[in-house]
């Protein structure tokens, strides 16, 4: 038993370092994809058909193909088109675009669930479209989309592990390195506990909102 703990203590710095990278992917993805998703959702509401078609196609592709495939495309595929990104930047780009599509769907559903009487009342009070969205529609939408949004955010914590495939030194990568080096699987257990801890925190936060 004490052997187990001393091993955990020994690998802990590397695991912690990996967890920090995972959290970095998590945070950067959210910071990029939440506003982008909102923008996509709002643009997707315009009446002009070609714009809607474009937005729908984007969402369809992002949700219809695996995130890992998209990550490979950005990291291995884009250099063919003269765009070469390092591994962590590739993760940021692929994750932001993918999660923006999911968030856009959630925002869109939320916005569409608001009664049309709210728009009519705003219009009758002389509010502009942007005032109506900012002051009336979006604040009401926020409350309704917190549950589906929380689900996606929790999924994101776990999805950060996909970055290991392109050798980003995140948590799972750190665990794998330790397992390969020391020929014991304890590091996987430690990684699992860290993921559980992170998702638990997020679950608790989302319940409080």
């Amino acid at each position: 038993m004490s052997e187990f703990f001393s091993y955990v203590i020994r690998i802990w710095p590397a695991m912690q370092q990996g967890a920090l990278v995972s959290l970095e992917i998590f945070a950067v993805t959210l910071i990029l994809s939440l506003p982008l998703g909102l923008l996509v959702a709002l643009v997707g509401l315009v009446k002009f058909k070609p714009v809607r078609w474009l937005i729908n196609t984007y969402i369809w592709i992002m949700r219809g193909t695996p995130l890992l495939l998209q990550l490979f495309f950005v990291y291995f595929g884009l250099p063919t088109f003269g765009i070469t990104l390092n591994s962590i930047t590739s993760v940021f780009v692929a994750f932001a675009l993918n999660y923006a599509a999911y968030f856009a769907e959630i925002f869109r559903a939320g916005i569409l669930s608001i009664d049309k009487g709210q728009y009519e009342a705003s219009q009758a009070l002389g509010m502009t479209y942007s005032q109506t969205m900012r002051r009336i529609i979006i604040p009401q939408t926020v409350k309704r989309i917190i549950p589906p949004l929380s689900n996606e955010v929790i999924t994101l914590i776990k999805d950060t592990s996909l970055a290991t495939y392109i050798t980003v030194p995140e948590l799972l990568h750190a665990a794998k390195t330790a397992v390969n080096r020391d020929s014991v699987t304890t590091a996987y257990l430690v990684a699992a506990i860290i993921y559980l801890f992170l998702t638990l925190i997020l679950t608790v936060i989302s319940k409080k909102l």
């Binding site: 009664d115 009487g117 709210q118 009342a121 009336i136 009401q140 409350k143």
Partner: peptide, 9 residues
Amino acid sequence: FQHFNLFPH
């Protein structure tokens, strides 16, 4: 309006 349409938030 018939259904008031107050802003609930």
